[in-house]
Lab assay of single mutants.
Amino acid sequence: MNLTVNGKPSTVDGAESLNVTELLSALKVAQAEYVTVELNGEVLEREAFDATTVKDGDAVEFLY
């Protein structure tokens, strides 16, 4: 899956889609429990991480 992460191209191997929690784990995001996630310009509530799917071509920003 090809994404733009914090403005840079990134690839997650072996996945066509992941939820936000899985993406944080796959990318080994440090202190993931404290990060705010913006997906395609929309800031996500932490409670929505498990239910929100990240797909090929999406833009993700991790805000600390």
Rank of each mutant, 00 (worst) to 15 (best):
S17V: 11
A15C: 13
E47D: 12
R46L: 06
N2T: 13
Q31K: 11
E38Q: 15
E16K: 14
L27T: 02
A51W: 14
P9M: 10
V54L: 10
M1G: 03
N40H: 02
E33A: 11
Y64W: 11
L39I: 08
K55P: 01
K28G: 14
N6L: 03
L24S: 00
L24D: 02
L44V: 15
G41A: 03
L3R: 01
E42S: 11
E47K: 10
L63I: 14
P9Y: 07
A32N: 10
V12H: 05
T36K: 08
V20T: 01
Y64G: 09
K55I: 07
V20R: 00
V29H: 04
A30Y: 12
F49W: 15
V12C: 09
A48I: 07
M1P: 03
V35H: 05
K55Q: 08
V29E: 04
S10T: 15
A32G: 09
E42N: 11
F49M: 04
N40E: 01
S25T: 12
E61H: 10
D13S: 14
G41V: 02
A51P: 02
A32R: 10
E47H: 11
G41D: 03
V54I: 10
S17L: 09
S17M: 11
V20F: 06
A59Y: 13
D56F: 05
V12P: 03
D13M: 14
P9E: 07
L24G: 00
V54C: 04
T21I: 07
F49A: 03
R46H: 07
D56L: 04
G14P: 05
V54E: 00
V5S: 03
V5R: 00
T21C: 11
E61P: 00
G14N: 09
M1R: 04
F49I: 02
A51L: 13
E22R: 07
S25M: 12
V37P: 00
L18M: 14
E38S: 15
A30S: 11
K28V: 06
T52A: 06
N6C: 13
V60E: 02
L18I: 09
E38C: 15
G41K: 04
K55C: 07
N40K: 01
Y34S: 10
S10G: 07
E42A: 10
V29G: 05
M1E: 02
E33I: 07
V35Q: 04
P9N: 08
E47V: 08
V60K: 01
L63P: 05
K55L: 06
V60S: 02
L39N: 01
S25P: 01
G57N: 05
A32I: 13
S25V: 14
N6H: 03
N40W: 02
E22I: 05
V54N: 01
L44G: 01
D50M: 07
L44W: 01
A51I: 14
S10D: 06
G7Y: 03
P9K: 11
G41Q: 04
V5D: 02
E22Q: 13
A51M: 13
E38D: 05
L23N: 00
Q31E: 11
E61A: 08
T11C: 13
K8I: 13
E45V: 09
L39F: 05
D13T: 14
P9F: 09
P9A: 10
T52P: 00
N2C: 13
L44F: 04
Y64F: 10
G57S: 03
A48P: 00
L24C: 05
L39P: 01
A30R: 11
F62D: 05
L23K: 00
D50W: 07
L44Q: 02
E42C: 13
N19G: 04
A59K: 14
D56Q: 07
S10L: 15
K28H: 12
E16M: 14
A26H: 12
E42H: 13
E42Y: 08
K55E: 05
F62I: 15
V20A: 01
E45F: 09
V60I: 13
A30I: 11
N6S: 05
R46A: 06
E16W: 14
